[in-house]
């Protein structure tokens, strides 16, 4: 089943007078259960594409369908709800909320979805266990190592049980050993049935993925 479909997608940033084309005619289809790595030089448009796939951003031109729905037709608020249910984000800089404990960070997406309290707490504990952080639930992000923070952010992405995990350079800020550990977690998630889309610079890590898409200057030059 096709989860994400991009048809001739352009993203052009307006920088004052100058137009910066970040994506120039991307056509792409990702089906359920895929593990996709997106590679390419810095500035080639990887993050821009991820944001559009993740419905954080809308294209300047072209059509984006998430589970068959044209996202340009959805209101901001409906898009937020769709995003919350179907997509889990993992960022290079973890992006945890510093004033909240690991547990509260993981609980946050569930609160946003208005899951009932007892169920939400159970779920948060479950996903924290899954990433081996059962004993660190009440630590603040500042009290955790980089790898642990990234695991918290994976737990947060997993908590609402999304179909797609989007990870933009999830290992970019980690040493290679910790990076491999994080990648193993993603690999296991893929084996359990999740669709994983990951941006990476590291070709060794890209090998974990079953499909590699290479971008250059806003075009797909391989794997499209």
């Amino acid at each position: 089943m096709t989860l994400v479909k991009l048809q001739d997608v352009y993203k052009i940033y307006q920088m004052g007078e100058v137009q910066v084309p970040a994506l120039r005619g991307i056509t792409l289809e990702i089906t359920q259960g895929e593990f996709v790595a997106i590679v390419g030089q810095s500035g080639s448009g990887k993050s821009t594409m991820m944001n559009i796939v993740g419905c954080l951003d809308k294209p300047t031109k072209g059509i984006v369908r998430l589970k068959g729905q044209d996202i340009s037709r959805l209101s901001d608020s409906n898009l937020a709800v769709l995003r919350g249910h179907t997509i889990g984000f993992i960022f290079q800089q973890y992006n945890l909320i510093p004033s909240m404990t690991a547990f509260d960070n993981v609980l946050l997406p569930l609160e946003l979805q208005e899951m009932n309290d007892a169920q939400a707490r159970k779920q948060a504990n479950k996903v924290l266990e899954m990433v081996d952080l059962g004993d660190k639930t009440h630590h603040l992000p500042s009290q955790l190592s980089g790898g642990q923070q990234q695991r918290v952010s994976i737990a947060r992405a997993l908590a609402p049980e999304p179909e797609i995990i989007l990870a933009d350079e999830p290992t970019g800020a980690l040493d290679s050993k910790t990076g491999r550990d994080v990648l193993k977690i993603l690999h296991n998630l893929w084996k359990s049935g999740k669709t994983i889309i990951m941006v990476t610079h590291d070709l060794n890590l890209a090998k974990y993925a079953k499909r590699q898409i290479e971008l250059k200057d806003g075009h797909i030059i391989k794997g499209g």
Partner: peptide, 16 residues
């Protein structure tokens, strides 16, 4: 700002 961005990424609506 950044926290607002994070919350929106994980499903917060404008009204939240």
């Amino acid at each position: 700002t950044k926290e607002i961005g994070i919350m929106k990424a994980i499903g917060a609506r404008n009204s939240d």
